[in-house]
């Protein structure tokens, strides 16, 4: 047995690991936001665009869902300079992760838009909304409700997928662990701590996701199905039954 608790606890409070974890967080958020933008544009192009726009969107989705993210990152950072396109590590990591994520999100967003009742589009037209207004005020806000759960799942994945950016020397959590492992050769301790960091980040995100889902469910939630009058009646009945708490 060669497990060192001192190294383990040292890695937990290690500044390099903490900075790495912070980089993982912001890299995930930035890539997700950009990926979401790309996904919305690709989904709308595929659903409402002319033949050319549809073809471009389908090609993009096909290409980035059909190839490993690892190859995409390496091509962007190491391969593109051959064509005279030089991006920094950070730019390459964000671009690769966002392009990859956008392709997956496009399909999720498309499904969300399709889940909105056709009558909503009729109603939005009937009060005089043009396409952009129908999308912005009526269709997308309702699609969001369907999209949020799988979107949260995607972000959970993103937090861990960023570890692949370590291959292009992006100094996120995985890369920090690799560097520390090379100094002390405490491989098990340092990667265990890295794994704990990922667990912590994912757990925090899960808590946030629950709140976001609750927010978007509010207009539709089961409580909303009960009319205020019925709720009052129910409270009265429960109070009379001796259970004052509701």
């Amino acid at each position: 047995m060669n497990w060192s608790w001192p190294f383990f606890f040292d890695y937990i409070t290690n500044g390099l690991m903490m900075r790495g974890a912070w980089t993982t967080v912001w890299l995930s958020v930035v890539s997700m936001v950009l990926g979401l933008g790309l996904g919305i544009v690709a989904a709308l192009m595929k659903m409402y665009g002319n033949a050319l726009l549809r073809y471009i969107a389908e090609f993009y989705i096909w290409l980035f869902r059909g190839t490993p993210i690892l190859i995409q990152l390496i091509i962007i950072y190491t391969g593109l300079p051959q064509l005279g396109i030089r991006l920094t590590v950070i730019e390459s990591a964000i671009l690769g992760l966002a392009l990859n994520e956008g392709a997956y999100l496009a399909e999720i967003i498309r499904a969300g838009i399709m889940s909105v009742d056709k009558g909503q589009d009729d109603a939005a037209r009937s009060v005089g909304m043009r396409w952009t207004q129908r999308m912005r005020f009526v269709i997308l806000p309702q699609a969001t409700r369907t999209i949020i759960p799988p979107l949260g799942n995607q972000f959970n994945g993103m937090l861990k997928t960023t570890s692949l950016a370590s291959v292009i020397s992006m100094e996120e959590l995985m890369r920090s662990a690799q560097m520390l492992a090379q100094i002390n050769f405490r491989v098990l301790e340092v990667y265990s701590v890295a794994a704990l960091w990922y667990l912590l980040l994912v757990t925090i995100w899960s808590a946030i996701q629950v709140r976001i889902e609750a927010h978007y469910e509010k207009p539709f939630g089961p409580a909303a199905a009960v009319s205020p009058e019925a709720e009052k009646e129910l409270k009265k009945a429960l109070q009379q039954a001796g259970t004052a708490k509701i």
Partner: peptide, 12 residues
């Protein structure tokens, strides 16, 4: 102005 059979209010 149009009024629909299924109301089509914006539920959100």
């Amino acid at each position: 102005g149009m009024v629909f059979q299924n109301f089509n209010l914006f539920p959100h």
